[in-house]
Design a protein around this nucleic acid. Structure first.
Lengths: 93, 93
DNA sequence: TAAATAGTTCAAAAATATTTGAACTATTTT
DNA sequence: AAAATAGTTCAAATATTTTTGAACTATTTA
């Protein structure tokens, strides 16, 4: 049986269990600054529709922060989420 | 584009991105000793066919060690894999 | 104000992953 | 030797995830 903490834990692993999203995460880590979804998509060759879907999954998992400024959406990693659900995963289960 | 290290990284996240496998991993962590697949399946209510499939995914990702003794297959976690691909993930990307 | 740009939403199509049951191998118990 | 047990494999069925293109909103540029 799955408890409620695990629902979030699972969403985090699911979010990282896709090649496009793993690339987005790595890209954001290296950029180390907020960047627009469009720019990320262009750099990684992800269509805007598909990008929109992937950013949503990452956002819902809490792995990225997003800020809408006018037409553009700026995203950046949320290190606290990585820390809590990834870095400390093994120790905490 | 996905590099070859990421193939393994992705397999590890995929392996953990399923409720049954997440439960298996937690169970193995708490048992903290090798245990047969059948016993795990019984405890977590996973059919033997489905269990066989999940243990294979975890094994291929390197997250568990498995040893066949006679009729039974004994499994345990492989902490080194968690350490390399989970605990150190954020720092290393 | 018309055209372009950034992103979202929707439903359908395509791709992947998971579950199931039957048949199988190998070992152990009766 | 027959029956039971532990696990695997296979193909089909089912479920879930991802991609696609068209239509949409909102903002900016020409």
């Amino acid at each position: 049986m799955m408890n409620t903490n695990n629902v979030k834990q699972l969403a985090v692993f699911k979010a990282l269990a896709d090649p496009a999203r793993l690339e987005i995460v790595e890209y954001l880590k290296h950029v180390d600054n907020e960047i627009s979804c469009g720019e990320v998509g262009k750099a990684l060759n992800i269509s805007k529709t598909s990008g929109s879907y992937h950013f949503k999954i990452l956002q819902e998992a809490g792995l990225i922060n997003a800020r809408k400024e006018a037409r553009e959406k700026y995203v950046s990693l949320n290190p606290e989420c990585f820390d809590k659900f990834i870095t400390n995963f093994y120790k905490n289960i």
